[in-house]
């Protein structure tokens, strides 16, 4: 499996995403925002965390116009796997690959801390090794991570099982105490209608090895590896 990790000016979790991929046994190619196309034979695109374009104007708002994004959108629309983490999630929303928007945290401050996530959907390529309801401890680090969307969109996401992860307490309960940023319905991560694009505010790449305190984040990468292994090669989407 080969991942392309896109570096935008201001991306600062791109190296971390590459490191986590390597730990999971995923080959990695670096992709530059000024490139017109993704690397050949890309199986997975990762839009990493950071402050693309300094968060100027609005988080992710400028990055979506980077030359490479046209190919990322094409790749996603053809069913290619795209994982957007933190700023990557923001870029996915700005580029229209995912619905909704990520606005200022309800507490108005940047928050970096561990949160618990409850796995809501196990039918996606990003959660295929997880049990429904499985709890993951994964850190967040953002100032603008409050997921919002109009009521119809939220209803649709819920009805179609497109909420991948929800912020919860250590016991798995979901309530306002477990919500670190005021996100609608405690939503921490969603997939698109095709299930091939995941955006999530927490950073699974940060907890991909026990040395750093927890390896729960590795589940996301391991799911992708399993999904890739299970899929017949002919059905894979090529970037060409």
């Amino acid at each position: 499996m080969k991942a392309a990790v896109v570096t935008f000016p201001g991306s600062n979790c791109d190296a971390d995403a590459r490191h986590a991929c390597a730990l999971a046994g995923i080959d990695v190619a670096a992709a530059w925002h000024k490139d017109g196309a993704l690397p050949a034979d890309t199986d997975l695109v990762i839009l990493p965390g950071g402050f693309s374009y300094g968060d100027y104007l609005r988080t992710g708002a400028i990055a979506r116009f980077s030359p490479i994004m046209a190919d990322v959108v094409r790749f996603a629309n053809n069913g290619g796997l795209v994982l957007g983490i933190c700023n990557g999630f923001q870029i996915l929303c700005e580029s229209g690959l995912l619905p909704g928007a990520l606005v200022r945290n309800s507490g108005l401050s940047f928050v970096c801390k561990d949160v618990y996530l409850r796995t809501e959907s196990t039918s996606t390529p990003f959660t295929s090794t997880l049990e429904k309801g499985a709890l993951l401890r994964i850190p967040i680090a953002h100032g603008e991570g409050r997921f919002v969307a109009d009521a119809n969109t939220i209803d649709e996401l819920e009805a179609q099982g497109r909420v991948a992860f929800r912020y919860c307490n250590a016991d798995g309960s979901v309530n306002v105490d477990a919500n670190p940023n005021g996100s609608a319905n405690n939503i921490a991560g969603i997939v698109n209608a095709g299930g091939n694009v995941l955006g999530m505010m927490p950073h699974p790449e940060r907890y991909a090895e026990a040395l750093l305190g927890c390896a729960d984040g590795m589940n996301v990468f391991a799911s992708l590896v399993q999904h890739y292994a299970a899929a017949a090669p002919t059905t894979l989407v090529s970037s060409q």
């Binding site: 490191h19 965390g49 970096c112 940060r206 750093l212």
Partner: peptide
């Protein structure tokens, strides 16, 4: 310290709250 990103770089073995931080 929760207003500071303490993990970017994925090297933070021990962070704020301890006697010293440890960076791999």
């Amino acid at each position: 310290y929760e207003q500071y990103d303490s993990q970017v770089g994925t090297n933070s073995v021990l962070r704020s709250g301890g006697d010293a931080a440890v960076i791999r």
